[in-house]
Write a protein that binds this DNA or RNA. Structure first.
Lengths: 146, 146
DNA sequence: AGCTTCCTGTCGATCTCATCCACGGCCAGA
DNA sequence: TCTGGCCGTGGATGAGATCGACAGGAAGCT
């Protein structure tokens, strides 16, 4: 995981469709060598997969919110129950003012309300506090610079 | 933006490297037709770019935190100042208990502390409250269903 | 030092796949 | 019925991914 690897990751984050030839040229390697490095980055799990970045608003989900969830019991398999709710994009266990933090995207605030009801129906949930996003400055991938 | 488009987006989110032929087969179209649809999805901005999904932990940033930021004045060009801090992955203006919500990834909690100091140095910031992530259940892309 | 092994790179051949073009069917409106 | 726009198909072609064989260099061992 040297400087070249980091550069490769950064270039691929920007455009995963680039040819290996141009990739190699950009980092001062042959195309095949660049290909080999990328292959290993995948193998090691640094690169999980190649995907497309979609605009949630264009998909009809302009509403973003973060939800702080408090629970009474220890929520064992809560993860799976939350995963079943498609509007939830992220779910974290946190240290601080609540037990869980969720990131939610919906089409309308009405839909957001419905999602909150679904969250409430998950066993162990006692209360939620919702933070609505008014404007997103930016959302970007992890910077590979160590 | 019909059912086929949504299916294409979902397939590409899972693996953007698929051949257009197999893509077409999966949705009951020819490769060329699938290609044309994807081209238009890009043109319309539904698909912003093709990228790689990297594991932040493998990149040496296992610490994730959310930071609630409060500010006194109206923070006009705060966005650019925050963008200059590489550890900040997301920045949102929110309605609720604070003005801004940031998502931060660092190598250590010590680095997190340094980022917080940098945030404090941004003009207008009066206080921060940090929520540290203990465990991430999941982080996934937007579901293209409706 | 001499040898082995592993890692990383180059070069060239092959074969898949993206890309482009011409054509055909379908539908709405005049 | 005619016409134009839209959306699809199928085929040709050229670019590029992919694979194998080989070379140089570093590290470890006898």
């Amino acid at each position: 995981m040297d400087e070249i690897d980091r550069k490769l990751v950064r270039l691929l984050q920007d455009d995963a469709g680039r040819s290996y030839a141009s990739l190699g040229q950009a980092v001062g390697l042959s195309g095949a060598a660049a290909h080999e490095r990328v292959r290993k980055l995948r193998e090691r799990g640094v690169i999980r997969r190649t995907t497309v970045d979609v605009d949630p608003a264009e998909l009809g989900r302009p509403v973003t919110a973060y939800v702080l969830v408090d629970g009474s019991t220890w929520m064992g398999d809560t993860a799976e129950r939350l995963r079943d709710i498609p509007a939830i994009e992220e779910a974290h266990v946190i240290a601080g003012p609540a037990s869980l933090l969720l990131k939610v995207r919906t089409a309308t605030t009405r839909d957001l309300q419905r999602v909150l009801r679904q969250v409430f129906e998950v066993e162990g949930v006692t209360s939620t506090q919702t933070v609505v996003v008014l404007e997103t400055f930016f959302e970007r991938p992890s910077d590979p610079e160590l």
